[in-house]
Amino acid sequence: MEKKAKPFSHIDLRVTSWEKALPFYEKLLPALGFTRRFDSSDWKAFVAEGDLPDASYFAIAEDPDHTPNKNLIGFWAHDQQEVDYIAKLVREAGGKITAGPGLFPISPTYYSVYFEDPCGNAYEFLHRTN
């Protein structure tokens, strides 16, 4: 079987409230490279560069009964400065920093920030060189 160059397709995320979550994601996702937007009555889709249907996307649906769990979505950062920038953006957009930004004992160069969206969904944005 041929290995795919880009194994990630999409994320389908639930939030408890469009009102609480959309302003946060409208700031965060473009900074992570999801610069195009396609909406329907049920979904708000933030799409990365590339031709559809191959472009990766991050889709959000409202579900008032959704309960966040211990799942975590992680994104790579180009460098530590980008981690710091995303941490600042998360704070400004109404997210909650749960740890960092800083070095973590996973490896000597593991620099990360852990955060939650306004509905409690968990993320990590990290840079490491080893």
Rank of each mutant, 00 (worst) to 15 (best):
G102W: 04
D84Y: 11
P118Y: 01
K3R: 12
D12Q: 15
Q80N: 13
F34L: 07
Y85T: 15
K3D: 07
L52G: 09
D42N: 13
A21I: 00
A5V: 10
K44V: 13
D39G: 00
E2K: 12
A93P: 01
R128S: 10
L28I: 15
N130K: 08
Y25P: 00
E82H: 14
R128Y: 09
G100W: 02
A93E: 03
P53E: 09
K6R: 13
E62N: 09
D42Y: 13
E49Q: 13
A48T: 07
K70N: 14
S107L: 05
V113P: 00
L32Q: 12
A31F: 05
H127R: 02
A87I: 05
K96C: 01
F115C: 04
L103S: 09
Q80R: 15
V15H: 05
Y57H: 14
T35I: 14
L29M: 10
I106Q: 14
P108F: 04
V47P: 04
G120D: 04
Y85C: 11
D39E: 12
G100C: 02
D42F: 14
H66P: 08
I11Y: 09
L32F: 11
A87N: 06
I11E: 04
L52F: 11
Y111P: 07
C119V: 08
D39M: 01
V90G: 03
T109M: 05
V83M: 08
Q81T: 14
L29P: 03
L28F: 01
F115W: 07
H127T: 02
Q80W: 06
N71A: 14
D117T: 05
H66M: 07
L103G: 07
Y111E: 08
W76M: 14
G95V: 06
G50V: 02
E26H: 07
N69F: 04
S56P: 11
E19W: 03
K20F: 00
A99W: 08
V90K: 03
D79E: 12
T109K: 06
F24N: 02
F104T: 09
K3N: 09
L103Q: 08
K27M: 11
T98G: 00
S56M: 09
H66G: 08
K27G: 03
K4H: 12
K3A: 12
S56H: 07
W18E: 01
Y123E: 00
P68G: 03
Y111K: 07
L32P: 09
E2I: 09
F125H: 01
I60G: 06
A77K: 05
G33C: 10
L32M: 13
I73M: 12
Q81V: 11
E82W: 09
W76G: 15
D63I: 02
H78S: 14
D63M: 08
